[in-house]
Design a protein around this nucleic acid. Structure first.
Lengths: 167, 167
DNA sequence: CTCAGTGCAAACCGTTTGCAGAACG
DNA sequence: CGTTCTGCAAACGGTTTGCACTGAG
């Protein structure tokens, strides 16, 4: 209810520090957006964020949300995702396992996070074999989550009747 | 030079078979688009395709290219990619290692293909641990390719000066 | 001949940008 | 107070869609 309640999530202060380091103003809107992102562990779209901010009594334009997310991503406090839905999602990188990967259910769209320690060795092998210097990776496994399988969901098959490999 | 030269790439016939199976007409345009996709092992954008078709004397609208690519993807002869460039790329799945992954250079944008057999065990482990039923995956490793490293390229760092992990 | 496909141009939609007015420092 | 930000709305760019016309079967 307080209209000028300060951003409450402690991690918002980190963002404020980043902004000050960059000589950028720490505005009420930027703190509000950061607070909304840090308030959940979900993967939020810009529309999700706008809705939550509005519910919290904040009236912040989409442009400002986009501009603030850019800053959050640059600060490395937030990570951008594209799960092929036609828009981006954002998740903060604090208080959880860093550098996790994603299981994405093709039925319900739900996202589960997993650790994939095997990828370190894989990246080292690839670097050794190809000379490529890896910086970051993106692993997404698409399929059916356990609840959707239990509910009887299956994946449609529409390809050529003759397996391609037989060509 | 022949204006109605038949689509030449043998794999185009496979696409024709798919279309017939689905009761869809095999049109000159569909064959031309398929031929352009099968003619290279590169990862082509729709603009790339339109350009190549035009160079080959074909005058095919973008809408038809998009609609034909949908069919090619449905037939499983072609795979769609999104490397975060703001548009999609397409690559055929014939005559090359199936189910490969991608190394993407952040400097020159070049894409290299690699096999990652480790991922099979990883997916099985994840399935066992979470009950998730994997269908397909997408692994992209971003970094610097060997030539760009040799040319002295480095990756810009802009995040918080204090490592996040220290929080 | 009939029905689906094609081409054009307009619509779409997530995202970006320009600009007048409001805040930060 | 000067500089940067904000909000609005218009612009953008890849993709999709509506519709009259063409072409495959």
């Amino acid at each position: 209810m307080p209209s000028d309640a300060p951003a409450v999530h402690p991690f918002v202060r980190l963002f404020g520090r980043y902004l000050r380091e960059q000589g950028l103003p720490v505005t009420q809107q930027r703190e509000a957006v950061a607070d909304a992102v840090f308030a959940t562990d979900e993967h939020l779209s810009v529309d999700d964020l706008e809705r939550r901010l509005r519910q919290g009594g904040e009236r912040i334009g989409k442009a400002t949300i986009y501009r603030t997310l850019d800053l959050l991503v640059k600060s490395r406090l937030v990570q951008e995702h594209d799960f092929g839905e036609g828009f981006k999602r954002y998740e903060h990188r604090l208080s959880r396992q860093p550098d996790h990967d994603h299981l994405i259910c093709l039925e319900c769209g739900g996202v589960t996070e997993v650790k994939s320690p095997e990828l370190r060795a894989l990246q080292e092998r690839v670097a050794r074999e190809t000379g490529f210097h890896p910086s970051r990776h993106k692993l997404e496994i698409y399929g059916l989550c356990a609840p959707c399988q239990a509910a009887g969901a299956t994946l449609a098959e529409e390809g050529l009747t003759c397996p391609i490999e037989a060509v």
